[in-house]
Design a protein around this nucleic acid. Sequence first.
DNA 1: TTGTAAGCGTTATCAA
DNA 2: TTGATAACGCTTACAA
Lengths: 346, 346
Amino acid sequence: MYSKDIAKLAGVSRSTVSRVVNNYSNVEEETRKKVNSIIKKYGYVPHGPARALAGKFSNIIGIFIANIKLGNEKFRVYQNVYISPFEAAIIDYADKLGYNVLALIINNDSDFNKIKKLFDSKILSGGIFLGANNNSREIFDLIKSGYKIAIIDQEKNQNRTVHNYIIVNSDNFGGAYKATRHLIDYGHTEIAHICGDMNKYSGFKRFEGYLKAMSEIKLKNKKDYITYGDFTEEGGFNCANQLLRNKVKNRITAIFSSNDTMAIGAMKALKKMKIRIPEDISIVGYDDIRIASYVSPTLTTVRSSIMEMASVATKNLINSIENKINALEYFIIPAELVIRESTTKK
Amino acid sequence: MYSKDIAKLAGVSRSTVSRVVNNYSNVEEETRKKVNSIIKKYGYVPHGPARALAGKFSNIIGIFIANIKLGNEKFRVYQNVYISPFEAAIIDYADKLGYNVLALIINNDSDFNKIKKLFDSKILSGGIFLGANNNSREIFDLIKSGYKIAIIDQEKNQNRTVHNYIIVNSDNFGGAYKATRHLIDYGHTEIAHICGDMNKYSGFKRFEGYLKAMSEIKLKNKKDYITYGDFTEEGGFNCANQLLRNKVKNRITAIFSSNDTMAIGAMKALKKMKIRIPEDISIVGYDDIRIASYVSPTLTTVRSSIMEMASVATKNLINSIENKINALEYFIIPAELVIRESTTKK
DNA sequence: TTGTAAGCGTTATCAA
DNA sequence: TTGATAACGCTTACAA
């Protein structure tokens, strides 16, 4: 069933059918009704590729998910409890706006070629990057080519030649500040930090939030309190071992970990050393991943609305596609503290 | 950069460029080399919609994920720790075969119209259903229309008019048998079962595996030992309460739950009643979701290779697209027992 | 082995 | 407000 068939049945031309399909105003109301009823009756669906070929943008956006690189372990991304909810929220939100989502997992730089091809071949009319490294040159190249891009978790960049894209971030700084401040309010002063991947915006921004809160109290030997993980459970495990093994061992009473996954790794390390949580050491994570409320003790953490981040990114991306907007748009989504069992007053 | 540009640069016609792009044999080797080098040099990518319009099938397959219906809670699917790994594995595997994946979440029957449109508009050349209900009429309608479909977790159907699709299942029966047999081997005889959604293949097949193992030992009052959950944590919680509240309370020493999520719900219920796991009651789940190794005690469960199920479905779907195969193909992926802390000898 | 030309289903331009 | 027609970029007979 094609537009010419509808045209014949309705006694109009294909152009008129096209006008109705695209909701153009220059169609008589009666004609519109007749055509629409026939379209409905026969379940006519415009041929997507033909529309695209004739100049319409596709109603498909891409979602590009950075895989976690960890040795030879493949498909690590689908163990990433933080990413999946984002993905599903974007799919669902795009669907509401009449768009479909094509998902791609980025394992390495050469995968950017695939993305470029998808854009070049006009299959995608926009895309959202999830978990990509900060200020990636490849992403900027795409933006410079005029493609519509939104990035979740990226620094607002200062590069004056790249300015037409959308950034959505959790209030990493504010959230980390709240987390650390929560420990301080509970009477802790000897608070260690497990950093995330410092190449990602969330990594260093949460670190800055921690520093801000710590600057409000007096603390010596600051450096010993800071360890460098990479957002993975193994990283958190190692950092906790390092923290508790060195000379600060007997002073630390609390840890703020840059994400939940590392916090859970740290908890495993502490349990192995027979250190009690939260009696001996309080722990705060970040992200409120699902597992956070299943570990024991349940994990105090920081949460940003995933729905909100996903919807802001998706909505604005689609808006910029449809209205051909080309401005830098920058959104920060608030973060709230979720207090559970892993923190206690000192 | 279009094929005519490549043609001009290479000093050939567009048809020849097309032949090279599509790897046809009737091209002189030297011509092919020249054209290919220019394609590479200028980063030419064929226009997807134009190819589709000219008769090629698209290299996009769909993945249709059934959402969980639970009251008013939206976007429940992205809390589904079982589905996400499947999705990512399919995306990754399709990518290896040069295909892209368009993801869609099915919330209700009317979403099947969207799926039909995606097929009708030639955007998709095949699709995989995840978590769909057994023998859904809507899915069969799609298959009857000639669209290429693979289904994960569906009964091999007896309907003689629908036979040209792919089914991939975990060995639910064998896995459930192993799980129950494991409890029996540990000396348990009073083994209860928490059923999953009996509208799904996995639900009733796992139940049958349990029955098979139980039939090998003598047991009275069989009916009291069986409760009906729905694969959700709440369901497992309620079933455990029901089991431990009624008259069989003091006899049951073990529970086999049809999935991990319900097993975790059951564990919560037992903890609330101060029943020790595994000392008082042993528990086995199914699926080996990530949380299973984070709860305490860690959960004994049954695992099928997600990678294998995803790759079998994806590979065979794409094969049937490219070779226009139209046969019913039925695959069963083996399941293995993973013994952890939640089961002990009686 | 290669080129010419028609055709895929839609939208956009122009004229009526 | 409508219809005829060209154009979108590719593939594919058919002819050479």
